[in-house]
Write a protein that binds this DNA or RNA. Structure first.
Lengths: 128, 128
DNA sequence: CTTGACCTTCCAGTAACTGGAATGCCCATG
DNA sequence: CATGGGCATTCCAGTTACTGGAAGGTCAAG
């Protein structure tokens, strides 16, 4: 299977797939013409990676998760730890964003948004 | 005022301040020895930038907001539009993260996290 | 034999900094 | 006057996870 098919089956762009090979996440074979030859297993890995990335795992997390996935003797605890750490990161981002959202929302509601120059948003940013 | 004092007063690192000069957000004077000479106004701009960045505005948003801030004839509507656009971006990020958080939380709770290899987290990522 | 759709590699750019090296200035102390 | 420490400067590289584009090779159809 060439890269286009692998791309369609995995939902990842050809660029992304080449990038994943560059950084060693997948190792497709090569045809005699130099074209990458993807096996089903390669596509499975790509789908796995796409799912993990969609959950926000970093590439390095993905690398670790794939290694665990391929290790039949893994302990589920090892997976859980990675997921829990990631959950903490996500929750912290959500907190930060919620705090931004709140402030921003307040400021927007306080701003008349008309032709006059008076603006609580700028005043807030510039208050010394 | 040298960069260290500007850094302390603004809460931004010296590195960041130099970077902001590089990209044209501030234009401190220079002493004869080549050192940057910050006026109070430069520091005010740095504080403004720090606040805006803390609210998640991009550098380009910050540039536009600063221009409006310095324009005595601005219309508050122009500021409001930028803030509202930004709020939308933030809300969209929050939605994405919440969806990740939910899935991740479910998977973590389903995972025994012991020495056995059975792991719903990996199973979910690898389901074809 | 050419056309068009593939494929390849390599280089550069994105956002917003951060780290570090090499070097220079300034001031105080011995 | 030398020297040491703390400041300053510039410039280069690295971070994350790709994406865009150029230049060029391959393949199958007409």
């Amino acid at each position: 299977m060439n890269i286009k098919d692998a791309s369609q089956k995995s939902g990842l762009s050809a660029k992304t797939i080449r990038y994943y090979e560059d950084i060693g996440l997948i190792k497709p074979l090569r045809d005699s013409n130099g074209y990458r030859a993807f096996r089903d297993n390669d596509v499975h890995k790509l789908i796995f990676l796409g799912r993990a990335r969609a959950l926000g795992f970093t590439i390095e997390d993905c690398r670790a998760l794939m290694a665990l996935w391929e290790d039949r003797d893994r302990a589920s605890a090892d997976v859980k730890v990675i997921a829990q750490e990631h959950l903490k990161v996500i929750e912290s981002k959500i907190r930060d964003l919620n705090s931004m959202r709140e402030t921003l929302d307040d400021l927007i509601h306080a701003c008349s948004g008309d032709g006059r120059p008076d603006c609580p948003i700028l005043e807030n940013l510039a208050s010394f």
